[in-house]
Design a protein around this nucleic acid. Structure first.
Length: 436
RNA sequence: CGGAGCGUAGCGCAGCCUGGUAGCGCGGCAGUUUUGGGUACUGCAGGCCCCCGGUUCGAAUCCGGGCGCUCCGACCA
């Protein structure tokens, strides 16, 4: 992307309404635009990040055996009457009436709809297990939306639903999602810690919240110091195993939210920190399948009510959560896997022939190597360019200026550490091509 | 949902008390200048002063009603 063409409205000043650092930085970096209380438009830079995050979520869901589909945002009230939640859900549900006076709603979640789809088509135990997911906009009419996309009313969520013949199968599905979530967050550069949770209105008796640690997190959490050294990507077993040992290991290390914390059970090496909830998984048995009649024929021909679980990741919240966990006074520090661009080329002097030629050449070669690259070809002062790059947090920043080119070098800066190195154009190209 | 505020240029704000030509900084545009971490100067453009009604010769300003937004608390992917 050429920055001169890119729709990127960055700001020097911070809008007054933004209270937390991720909200301020998202506004200043031109990622979002508020359109109503708790409702945001995603501008091109923000949308790129949202897609990067969605893609990682998608890859891990697919690897765990879940299949993607897409359900609508608007649902029928009748569907929710089947589970009894139409009345139970209260004012958080946005209710809509269509031109025929039919009662509709903007989905806050999809248990009813997926159960309806499932029961229509799945009639035999031979078709189990099934795990279906989608990434779709949800609406929950929060009393007080705040903190930007961290607690918006409309938000993008990955939600999926598992269907199994018995509790044993359902628990295996649960463990697979447990692993998938740990891997998903780890791939985004986050330390996410699963904590036993209340099941709340969704119901059920087995549930974990995934909480990432960030100084500015909303809630107090407690965990064993051992969590900080775990590397799930290095040791995780495959999805074809039963995952029992893995699950036991990870659930036996102490971790608790403030509500569940028990000082008597806490280890000596206790870390007290702030956390942000980015995912939540539930096993809830037949809570929806029973009232809605999701029944299959078992091996002996008799009807079996299926065992279900549901699993959610707040995709749009993750954008803010990552910023909360990774920023400095200059701006965002994107972990490379979710960065909107991996590399930025800063042409310091656009009317200098050498600068234009070298930066244009680097840009073309990196692009054809499949690297997400941003070329700053704007007629701005160097200070403004550097400030913008740090604000939007591009992990690798390659500065091409007349001073360096005299001796054939460019400067490569790593956003995360601030480390700068001078190297030849060829060496820079080789190093950055490897990041495609 | 209880409490507290705020709506004036794209953003941050002053003006309102005490009614009389709508302002400042940032940003934008043009130019000069500068050129390796948000340069300086000059000029220009940009406003249904949230909406509706009332008072008044005259309302951004006073009064009434509405709408929107924010903050603090109780609740939440």
């Amino acid at each position: 992307m050429r920055m001169s063409q890119f729709f990127l409205p960055t700001m020097k000043e911070t809008p007054a309404e933004a209270q937390i650092v991720s909200h301020r930085l998202m506004l200043r970096a031109g990622m979002i635009r508020q359109t109503s209380a708790g409702i945001y438009a995603w501008l091109p830079l923000g949308w790129r990040v949202l897609q990067k995050i969605s893609q990682i979520v998608r890859e891990e869901q697919d690897a765990a055996g879940a299949q993607e589909l897409l359900m609508p945002t608007i649902q029928s009230a009748d569907l929710w009457r089947e589970s009894g939640r139409y009345e139970a859900y209260g004012k958080e549900m946005l209710r809509i009436t269509d031109r025929h006076e039919r009662e509709m709603l903007y989905g806050p979640t999809n248990e009813e709809m997926i159960t309806d789809i499932f029961k229509t088509f799945v009639k035999s135990y031979k078709d189990l297990p099934r795990n279906l997911y989608h990434i779709q906009w949800k609406f929950r009419d929060e009393i007080r939306p705040r903190f930007g996309v961290m607690r918006g009313r409309e938000f993008l969520m990955k939600d999926n639903y598992s269907f199994d013949l018995d509790r044993e199968g359902a628990e295996l599905s649960y463990r697979k999602m447990f692993l998938a979530y740990l891997r998903t967050f780890a791939r985004m550069g986050l330390k996410a810690i699963p904590m036993r949770a209340d099941t709340g209105p969704i119901g059920g008796d087995l549930s974990h919240e995934f909480i990432i640690l960030a100084e500015t997190g909303e809630s107090q959490v407690f965990c064993d110091k051992a969590w900080l050294d775990l590397d799930v990507l290095a040791e995780a077993p495959g999805y074809d195993s039963d995952l029992k040992d893995f699950f036991a290991k990870y659930t036996n290390i102490y971790a608790a939210t403030e509500e569940m914390h028990d000082a008597a059970k806490a280890p000596a090496d206790l870390v007290t920190a702030r956390g942000i909830e980015v995912g939540h998984i539930f096993y809830f048995g037949t809570k929806y399948s029973a009232p809605m009649g999701a029944v299959v024929a078992g091996p002996d021909g008799s009807p079996v009510t299926v065992e279900m679980g549901s699993y959610g990741i707040g995709v749009s919240r993750l954008v803010a959560a990552i910023i909360e966990a990774s920023h400095d006074e200059h701006g965002i520090i994107w972990p490379e896997p979710v960065a909107p661009f991996t590399v930025a080329i800063v042409n310091l002097k656009i009317d200098d022939a050498d600068c234009a030629r070298v930066s244009g050449d680097l840009y073309a070669k990196l692009q054809s190597a499949g690297v997400d690259v941003l070329l700053d070809d704007r007629d701005e002062r160097p200070g403004a360019k550097f400030a913008d790059m740090d604000l939007i947090g591009v992990p690798w920043q390659l500065t091409v200026g007349p001073r360096g080119l005299k001796t054939g070098v460019v400067e490569l800066k790593r956003r995360a550490t601030g480390e700068k190195r001078e190297l030849s154009v060829e060496a820079a190209l080789a190093e950055l091509t490897a990041r495609g």
